[in-house]
Design a binder for these strands. Structure first.
Lengths: 116, 116
DNA sequence: ACCTATTTGTCCGTATGTATG
DNA sequence: CCATACATACGGACAAATAGG
């Protein structure tokens, strides 16, 4: 198991639990954390960061709702999927856009503007 | 604002915050709560139900992650419009794609192929 | 446009319950 | 049985955003 490197910026405009969740999400997307790998226990990570256990648990719960990790009671969190399935998400977006009567070019413009 | 009728069964197998979230979700689906309408303040609803503020806030956060309500800091929660927000979904897809190191053209090809 | 009072979200702490290994 | 680790719910405190005068 590689190092679990998470940096917290208390003065950030973003809440701590969001910073933790996004940091872990990044590491999953970049395959630093691979499927099946255990997350550090909430208490251990919290103690390591000098913050409260609930703040970490809140980040973990957020990742669980997004189906990135699976939490269980006596065991902790495990990474479920590696990189998010872009193609699947893209298909869902396209069908949703088509239902609204949007044209393909309109969607492409939205994608292009969102890329920056 | 119509009556906000929520019943809590402490002896239920389901957690209190789930009972609250599902109750509100039902009322949104039945148009008892309509888009733009404000949810009762978490502290007021908690006091009315004889439970803690955090339990209600947890239910609200759950509804927010499912894009049923929108929470903001000094204002509270409002029921979001039913139509799916394509631009928002597109931005989420783009950021997810960028995290995997995908290029813009690669994503555009996926979109184009998914359109048919 | 300003000021104040309220409301809200976040975070910390504590306690109890329950599933896992 | 026991130690580990999460799940739920409670209470308190504070900064920031909002609303109303």
């Amino acid at each position: 198991m590689g190092d679990m490197l998470i940096r917290i910026v208390p003065s950030s405009d973003q809440p701590i639990y969001v910073q933790i969740a996004e940091s872990i999400e990044d590491q999953i997307a970049r395959h630093v954390l691979e499927p099946g790998e255990r997350l550090p226990s909430a208490r251990a990570l919290a103690s390591s960061l000098g913050i409260n256990m609930h703040t970490v648990l809140r980040a973990y719960a957020h990742l669980q709702e997004r189906s990135l990790v699976e939490m269980r009671k006596g065991r902790g969190g495990v990474v479920v999927a590696g990189a998010p399935d872009i193609e699947r998400s893209a298909r869902q977006l396209v069908t949703a856009a088509q239902k609204t009567g949007m044209t393909k070019t309109e969607l492409e413009i939205i994608i292009r503007e969102a890329w920056e």
